[in-house]
Write a protein that binds this DNA or RNA. Structure first.
Lengths: 158, 158
DNA sequence: TCCCAATGTTTGTATGTACAAATGCGTAGC
DNA sequence: GCTACGCATTTGTACATACAAACATTGGGA
């Protein structure tokens, strides 16, 4: 597929036909970030009903299902850095959805009653997200994609 | 694969075995963002020799190869939003690598001589990035991954 | 016993990206 | 020729995330 492209060079408008499937979109850098931005957007939409971003939502779900969970565990589960996890917890604490207790060097995160009450709604958001992307990408295709992405992510030592 | 997990609940340390391959990493949200963060990191390393982030580097390459290129074209190529493209150009302008000229509602981006001189170094960074990820992921596997990611990105209407 | 290294968490700061609104220009219709 | 709409770009602002350094705690070796 080709399309018309125009730009000016030395005061002259230049038109030419260009391959749509440009070389840049074929690079893993653009491919992976474009995908993740689109997915992020879809997820954000799905989590909007509970007024949380997807990361906050998932973190809260884990905290409800495993009361007393530690930041280090969340780091593994959500695949984010410790500082990001701290920031996420801070925000949930501001919203009175979790509380943090620190003894020695260990911190535990517990859901508040208000947080616990949200579990069904949170699950619904996660479900909705999964259904939406599976519907668009195809059931089999999307799960194949997810597993090959995971595999590749594991292989990448940065 | 299982591993030992511990947390405290009601003053008691709880230990239990947990599947490593947690349910959360199997979600497209975490999968795609984890991949893109790792890839971003690798790319950033590869582009460090020229002192630019990957996006800036690619944008400059396009500007060199297509002098007078317009922001709207860059939006398509780099799959970023117009405002982000403006910000990227601004930064390259600060570094005296490109100049912007505006006539009417159209803006053109031209490389400066200083910018043009960087072309070989820029290409080397791109090459290095590609080689590094292909070496780690496998030649065939990585290109398969890229094309299925692109395909899925296109399918996703957010 | 004391110090030092390792570990878990937090803080200060920076970056990349986006959305929404503003701007500035071109154009179609009356 | 004026007006209203539409497009390309920029600006103000916000958010998610990360890195590096700081901090606090624990455990092991001289």
């Amino acid at each position: 597929m080709y399309k018309c492209v125009a730009f000016t060079f030395a005061q002259q408008q230049i038109f030419y036909m260009k391959a749509c499937d440009s070389r840049y979109s074929q690079c893993l850098y653009f491919a992976s970030s474009a995908l993740s931005r689109k997915v992020e957007k879809l997820a954000t939409e799905c989590w909007a009903p509970v007024g949380l971003s997807p990361s906050h939502g998932y973190l809260l779900m884990i905290a409800i299902e495993e009361p007393g969970v530690q930041p280090s565990f969340l780091v593994e589960q959500l695949q984010l850095t410790p500082s990001t996890i701290t920031r996420l917890i801070e925000k949930l604490e501001e919203k009175k959805l979790v509380v943090r207790t620190t003894e020695g060097k260990i911190t535990n995160v517990y859901p508040t009653p208000k947080g616990k009450d949200m579990l069904p709604a949170l699950k619904a958001c996660g479900q909705d997200f999964h259904e939406r992307y599976a519907a668009q990408l195809g059931d089999r295709e999307s799960s194949t994609l997810v597993s090959s992405i995971c595999q590749m992510t594991d292989k990448l030592k940065v």
